[in-house]
Amino acid sequence: MKANQPMIRVKDLHKHFGAVQALNGVSLTVERGRVVVIIGPSGSGKSTLLRCVNHLETPTSGEVWIDGEQLTTNQAHLNEVRAEIGMVFQLFNLFPHLSALENVTLAQEVVRKRSKEKAIENAMKQLERVGIPEKADSYPGQLSGGQQQRVAIARALAMDPKIMLFDEPTSALDPEMIKEVLDVMLDLAKEGMTMLVVSHEMGFTRAAADEIIFMDEGLIVEDTTPHDLFNNPREERTKLFLSQILQH
């Protein structure tokens, strides 16, 4: 909206699932065009934070601002905002009854009200961007995990989002397919997309992240540059976690 507003601003976010406290007051700002990676042990609230940003989870309390506009619980408003925020899931969540192309055109037609021709044209452009235009007519079940995830990225990009959220996009992939997905993400980062990424891919983090956040027990423990976090983590918890994931 306004150029001087941060793209994502999260203020004192709390999220409880019954007695479980997933988020205990998280505040975070992501400037336009920045790539922020969130790491942390499982159950630390990383995914919940990400899902609160587009209100797939409704926060218990706190505020989320997207491009200078505060999210409310009004559904019509939420649908509008979500169209501007692409999301990529760990398990891809492609629509299995639709071809790769239809996966990418559906929301363009239904939400953006684009004509079929325009939607297809744009979808092919996005499939080329993620490197698999030849799979346009394949169904998700016929694609490898890496290809599915790239279609999922194309599906999100086709909406021309201002922000891309990645929720552990490579955790469900076989090792040889991780690179093809990370390459696409790296290209996006270079093109200046604002990205919030939950991932433990340290190679990607080093190469693309402007900022890295370490979360534990629903709180942000450390928020710094990848270089600083890897080379001299301040907090004990961060050191312990890094020693565990970087051991091998």
């Binding site: 559904q75 019509a76 979500r82 692409g86 969540n93 492609l94 929301a107 999100a156």
Partner: peptide, 12 residues
């Protein structure tokens, strides 16, 4: 996940 994916692209 199907409902979430659909909602995440802005569908009602």
């Amino acid at each position: 996940g199907q409902m979430e994916a659909a909602r995440s692209v802005g569908m009602s």
